[in-house]
Design a protein around this nucleic acid. Sequence first.
DNA 1: CTGAAAGCGCTAACAT
DNA 2: ATGTTAGCGCTTTCAG
Lengths: 358, 358
Amino acid sequence: MTKSPTVYDVAAAAGVSTATVSFTFRNPGRVKESTREVVLAAARKLGYVPNVSARSLARGRTGTLGLFAYDFLWNAADRRVPAGGTLPESHLLQGEPYDDFRLFPVYLDEVQRGFELECWRRGFEIILGGRKDGLSESIITEIAGRVDGLAVFPRRLPAETLAHVARRIPVVEFASGDDGGDYCHITADNASGMEMIASHLMSEHGLDDFVYVSSASNADSEERRGAFNSVLEGSGVKLRPDLAYAPATIKPELSRLIDAGTLPQAFVCASDIVALEVIDALGALGVPVPGSVAVTGFDGVVAGAVSTPGLTTVRQPMSEIGRLAADMLIARSSGETSDNKSVVLPVRMIVRGSCGCG
Amino acid sequence: MTKSPTVYDVAAAAGVSTATVSFTFRNPGRVKESTREVVLAAARKLGYVPNVSARSLARGRTGTLGLFAYDFLWNAADRRVPAGGTLPESHLLQGEPYDDFRLFPVYLDEVQRGFELECWRRGFEIILGGRKDGLSESIITEIAGRVDGLAVFPRRLPAETLAHVARRIPVVEFASGDDGGDYCHITADNASGMEMIASHLMSEHGLDDFVYVSSASNADSEERRGAFNSVLEGSGVKLRPDLAYAPATIKPELSRLIDAGTLPQAFVCASDIVALEVIDALGALGVPVPGSVAVTGFDGVVAGAVSTPGLTTVRQPMSEIGRLAADMLIARSSGETSDNKSVVLPVRMIVRGSCGCG
DNA sequence: CTGAAAGCGCTAACAT
DNA sequence: ATGTTAGCGCTTTCAG
């Protein structure tokens, strides 16, 4: 932590040139066995740690991929950690973020895991972005300039910012659509997924009265809704207004339907998390699922598997999505130019109890 | 992706010097409003993205903290966590890492989350290390040289490697003990936790015949075992041999005890994961928990909350541990030298059903 | 308030 | 097989 040794120090200590030191680490085959040993010994003795910033600068690439996620536990981020010492009692008694097991792992976590595994497998490091404020600035000034490629979750950044970054490094967004932007897209087959759900509900359960529910509106949610509506139209089922709720307003929304006596036969939800919230709210309002009404999700997160009733849903190949992103970024950052800028991965339906099966 | 614009390009386009460009971003107060606008306009037009490697090199610090974790999934082949418990067969999905919901989030995930949140709050980026092979080499050649501080999970790296790295940047290990190494330690209060478990088992349930179970042996596990044994000795309870099992051998081990008719009244486990494996194995051998024997865990991971029976355990303040690590690293990397190199955080007991309560 | 210029530590031609 | 050396792009005194 004082002045750290550099290639020059190692070179001097080993009685060789800096080039030889560099080769010893970067290109061992180019130095004689004996000299290499001398260099390594000197490096070890001095406690040499190569400066990767300098290396990246000289080489023109960083060996790092960025993943720009959001963290929905951000609210907890304001709690402060006392600088050293022990933790006040109050920090322990209050709930920790994971007290609700449903929060983890969600879609994002599984995609991230796939991304990590692929990066590590390929010898890349990962830099995790997630800063809350000044997002669009910081991604340019803090992240983009130190990675060879960047994967971002949707709705985090203005298209303009992404385009800016994409002028310099390959970018892949976990969302559908390749219109305009000069970056890649990876997404699951929302349309097929929704078609499976719709036909299951209609064919297996003979239902024909649905309400589509979503929380935050995004490209995926819209695609799913569109696909669902298409199936209904194709079958001559009448469309009902969607239920788009803001956080925490789901219960009054459902309450209204109940009071009006217009509860549908099934709530088709834009995501598993939405579905679980709907099921909870319905339960609190005295409406059993699937007894009185069916509910379906989308994503296939773990929470839907361990909930009661189990959630009927469509599972995205989340870790594959993450792996593929890393793969595409690595390929493109090293010059390979394939033209499949948009990839849609297949999904699979999982039937559990919430639709009325089993 | 062609030649990216640099400060020189921006400076030329804006008709100023590179110093002014740099100041515009790094120290906006030093440039006149009007020139700053000219520079920003030029930067935007050219699609300028500052090269962070160059910045880090020039400044001597990176604004990045490293977290060197291991990934459960890397070991999925040799280490299996049972999928029994409450999860019906039909809920399992094949081929995806998250098929076993018990795998997430574990201790490591929660610590990591806390680390991330604190880093982001403080304006630091995170680099995630996890490469499986050549660990001790890669941490030196690939990670240490590009971060301002490094947090590592225990048992991943030889002390020698950590010491090497610690000569250059502050290092904190998530384990107890500050003997020798020149790096920090953060851990939970293993002793108090085990004392709580021991006295609960003895006072509330009147038990006096225990077997301590652990899988991988590490500092934490040893500390917990020592504390447990101390309590027993202090109470005049006779000590029985520990049960240290290798992955997948837990069932035969337990089987042996059963056949010998020497099943204890309670299995006190070194971690929640161990406890869950023990409960599963006992169940498979026809020994109900807590009916015939009590079982306790340690950690407080989510899996223990959603399992059947619920796991009686001690919860570590995991996310606080992660936050504190980031906090200490940031402080030390910026020269603050506090002397509390070892921090022990308080724990809390969580009584659920596996001990016989409820 | 702005410019000139000396590094930061490493890499990779190009020489020897 | 090894040495010389010119950058890589940015920051930051020090002058002006």
